[in-house]
Nucleic acid binder design. Structure first.
Length: 418
RNA sequence: GGAGAGAUGGCAGAGCGGACGAUUGCGUCGGUCUUGAAAACCGUUGAACCUUUGCGGGUUCCGGGGGUUCGAAUCCCCCUCUCUCCGCCA
C-alpha cells in the first residue's frame, strides 16, 4: 500500500510510481478521488459532531415533552447523516481499491525499463565452458538426485535428494546460518502453513494466488517462501527504534505450483515444487534501510563467492520490479551447461510498503513511524546444489565440495559417480 | 473429534444503555526527597485520520462485520480468533 499523503505532496514519489509503468492518468485519478474523499470526510465529520452533541443533549433533558421533541428532531437529522455516510463509504472504497493497485515507487538509483534493462553492478569469477554433464545428468550419474521415481510418487517437478547430496545440503544450511549469524541474524524455523489473511497481508494474494498450494479443508496455504512468515512476525507491533535493526534468517521448505511454466527448466532441481531455503528478513529503521539493502547484497556475495561460484550482480530495472520492491538486486550464477547467468538469490528493499499493510511501526522520539522491511535470499538450497554440480564438476563427472563446506560434512570432499 | 470459557488502552483487569476514550493496579516518563540509587509521595501517559503556519479543533476506534436506539464497550445477530478440559498423537 502506498502513502497517499506523499503521493499528493511529492513529485518524486509520483515519478517513482510512473517508472514502474503506471500511467499519470491513473495517478491523477487517485489524486482526484483522494481530494474528493477528504472534502466529503470533512463534511460528514461535521455532521457527526452535531449529531453527537444533539444526542447528549437528550440525556440532559428532564421534561418529557421537551425530550420527545428533541428525539424526533434528532432522528430527522440522523437520516440525512446516514445518506452522507453511505456516499462517503462508497467513495472511500473506490479510492482504496485503486490505491491498492499502486506499486511502491522505485528508488531513484533504479535503471528505467523492462526485463532487459538491468544494470550489471559487478562480475566475479570465470565463465567456464560447458561441463560433461549438465546438472540434471550429473545428479543421476552420481545417484544423488532422483526425479524419475519422484514423478511416480508426486508428479513432475519433485525430486528425491539422496546420499551425499543430503550431506552437502545440510552442510550448506549450517554454513549459511553460521555466515548470517556473523551479521546479527537470528535463525528462525517458520510455520510453512499460514492463513489466507497472512497471504493477503504479505502481498501474495490475490496476485499470485495461482502459484500457491492450498489445504482447502483447513483454509491454510503452503508458503512459497519464509518471507511470508517472517513479514508477519511483528504484525500490529511497535518496535522500539533502539532495537532496530531486527534481522531474521528463516529456514523452511518452500512450495510453489509453478503454474504457467510448463516446459521450462524441466530437468533436475532448477525449478521444483518443493525446495528448502534460508531467507533473510530485516526490520529496519526507515533512515537506515538503504544501508541494510547493501548489507544483504554483501552477504549474498559472500555466500555465493565463498562457494567459489562465478556470479554477477545486477540491479533489476524499474519495470521488472514487483509491486513491493523499491529496489532489487539479483545475484546470478554462471550456469555452464546453458552458457549464461541465471538467478540464484536476490534482495529487495520494500521500504514502508509492506509494513503499512502489516501495521508494523517503529517507536521514535518523534512518534510512531512505519518500519521498513527488506528481504533477501541467503541460500536457495536446491538451486545452489545444482550450480555446485556444474561449476565444481571434474571431467569424470565427480563433484568437488567447496572448501568452506568441508568442515560441515567431515570426510566428504568429492562426490563420486556410483 | 467431544465439551466449556473468553476477546476492553504497553500489560493485568473493572465497566454491562446517556456524566466512558473508558475505574484501578503494574509498567512508562517527569518531579519531590537522596551524595547517588531504591523505597515513598506528587504528577504524567492510547492510536489512526481530517483540519490548522502554530496554539488548537473535529471524527473514528473497547476482536471483525451487521442490527436496535435520539444515544452502544454495554442489548441483538453473524463471523473470526484465543484459551481450558477430555480423546488421539511425533
Amino acid at each position: 500500500m502506498i502513502d497517499l499523503r506523499r503521493l499528493r505532496a511529492e513529485q518524486a514519489y509520483q515519478t517513482g510510481i510512473e517508472s514502474k509503468g503506471v500511467s499519470s492518468d491513473v495517478i491523477n485519478r487517485v489524486l482526484e478521488l483522494d481530494e474528493a474523499h477528504r472534502s466529503a470526510l470533512g463534511a460528514v465529520e461535521e455532521m457527526r459532531s452535531e449529531a453527537n452533541a444533539a444526542a447528549k443533549a437528550v440525556g440532559k433533558l428532564k421534561d418529557k415533552d421537551e425530550r420527545d421533541a428533541k428525539i424526533a428532531e434528532n432522528s430527522v437529522f440522523k437520516a440525512k447523516l446516514g445518506e452522507a455516510e453511505a456516499a462517503l463509504a462508497t467513495q472511500q472504497q473506490e479510492l482504496t481499491e485503486l490505491a491498492l493497485t499502486m506499486p511502491n515507487p522505485c528508488h531513484e538509483s533504479v535503471p528505467l525499463g523492462g526485463e532487459e534493462d538491468f544494470r550489471v553492478e559487478n562480475t566475479v569469477g570465470e565463465q567456464s565452458s560447458a561441463p560433461a554433464y549438465d546438472h540434471g545428468a550429473v545428479g543421476e550419474l552420481l545417484g544423488v538426485v532422483d526425479t524419475k521415481r519422484a514423478v511416480r510418487m508426486s508428479g513432475s517437478r519433485f525430486a528425491y535428494v539422496m546420499g551425499d547430496a543430503v550431506r552437502l545440503q545440510m552442510a550448506l544450511v549450517q554454513w549459511t546460518l553460521a555466515k548470517v549469524a556473523e551479521h546479527g541474524f537470528t535463525p528462525v524455523i517458520t510455520p510453512v502453513l499460514v492463513r489466507e489473511e497472512m497471504m493477503e497481508l504479505a502481498g501474495f494474494f490475490p496476485t499470485d494466488r495461482n502459484q500457491v498450494y492450498e489445504v482447502a479443508e483447513d483454509e491454510l496455504y503452503l508458503i512459497g517462501t519464509s518471507e511470508i512468515a517472517l513479514a508477519g512476525l511483528h504484525r500490529e507491533e511497535r518496535i522500539d527504534a533502539t532495537d532496530l535493526p531486527v534481522r531474521y534468517a528463516g529456514y523452511s521448505s518452500c512450495f510453489r505450483r509453478e503454474a504457467g511454466t510448463y516446459g521450462k527448466d524441466t530437468s533436475g532441481l532448477f525449478r521444483v515444487h518443493q525446495f528448502d531455503k534460508v531467507e533473510m528478513f530485516v526490520y529496519a529503521d526507515p533512515e537506515k534501510s538503504w544501508e541494510e539493502l547493501e548489507l544483504l547484497r554483501q552477504i549474498e556475495e559472500e555466500i555465493v563467492g565463498g562457494l567459489e561460484l562465478p556470479y554477477r550482480v545486477i540491479t533489476v530495472a524499474s519495470g521488472d520490479l514487483g509491486a513491493a520492491a523499491a529496489k532489487k538486486y539479483d545475484l546470478e550464477v554462471w550456469l555452464p551447461s546453458e552458457q549464461r547467468y541465471r538467478e540464484v538469490t536476490s534482495c529487495s528493499n520494500y521500504t514502508d510498503f509492506s509494513a503499512r499493510r502489516m501495521n508494523t511501526k517503529t517507536k521514535t522520539d518523534g512518534g510512531n513511524v512505519l518500519t521498513h522491511t527488506l528481504n533477501g535470499t541467503a541460500c536457495a538450497i536446491g538451486r545452489t546444489l545444482l550450480y555446485i554440480f556444474e561449476n565444481h564438476q571434474n571431467p569424470d563427472g565427480s563433484v568437488r565440495i567447496p572448501t568452506v563446506l568441508q568442515p560441515f560434512c567431515p570426510g566428504l570432499e568429492v562426490i563420486e559417480p556410483r
